[in-house]
Design a protein around this nucleic acid. Structure first.
Lengths: 144, 144
DNA sequence: TCTAAATTTAGAATAAGTCTAAAGCAAGGA
DNA sequence: TCCTTGCTTTAGACTTATTCTAAATTTAGA
């Protein structure tokens, strides 16, 4: 068993979610990708090889994985939600030109920032979303 | 002319967007509200009094206002996008229990944070999204 | 006033995501 | 091992959010 699949198996363990073939395939697909995928892309990809998965199953699993914290739902420019494996914490960058979403390395807010901002609310998580122009789109500046 | 409507008029000026009756109504509605509205809610509200606006117009204006930076699109728990006037900068808090989205007072990231995180990307804006349990939902804890 | 460009409209069309009811599996106890 | 119970999967119909279309209207500026 590779380091990689061990890590996935481990992840299922710690959140105590049944590692069904389809659920595993969804998480694996996301964990291998750099660019964030829409549910439709995941559906298409899974149905090129075994195990297959129905549309409903893809959504079911994206939701159960998100609830368990192994996957995050991110919204960029388009109307379809995008998903990424969040095995390791990170922030996000949304390109306003091409709509792609990229991961940025994690850093904590200075202690006290979130507490004072949130008042009496209970903060369970946070992320910073940066918007702007990605490296690829900066390169083609003016060409359009 | 009230301070408030002056501010809206001013906002249209500075981004040089035509202040049509419908567009003004959309922005005004959002600026007066505390809770973030879906397009459907805005559509319903506008069609209770003049000026009316068709569904397409509501969306057109939400998009033109968003592009101009006067409105922000935020995604909470539900599938419909929510919008808020962003005349003044702020961060967001999404309640994982009831799905409501609240504004948090703005604070800057410590200088250097965003620059080093984003690498060669051009950052035009950022926001911090906190998730957790809002004050109202904390109160009803355990009742369910 | 006149013109060109932007805006509005109703309704049809598309797309994203959810629901349903039946059938298949997985985990743990006897 | 064999049940039992509760997750999970499935195809496809369905709902709902958002976009598109083409014609009519309004706006800003010359």
């Amino acid at each position: 068993m590779s380091k990689f699949s061990e890590e996935l198996a481990q992840a299922f363990q710690t959140v105590s979610l049944r590692p069904t073939a389809q659920r595993y395939a969804v998480l694996e697909f996301l964990a291998r990708r750099r660019v964030h995928a829409t549910a439709a892309e995941i559906f298409d990809a899974l149905n090129r090889d075994d195990p297959r998965a129905s549309r409903a199953t893809v959504y079911n699993n994206l939701h159960s994985l998100a609830k368990a914290g192994l996957v995050r739902e991110v919204h960029g420019e388009g109307k379809a939600a995008r998903f990424d494996a969040s095995l390791h914490p990170h922030h996000h960058f949304v390109c306003e030109t091409c709509g792609d979403i990229e991961d940025l390395p994690w850093f904590d807010l200075p202690p006290g920032f979130s507490r004072s901002a949130a008042g009496k609310r209970e903060v369970r998580a946070y992320e910073i979303v940066f918007r702007g122009v990605c490296v690829r789109c900066r390169g083609t500046r003016g060409v359009r």
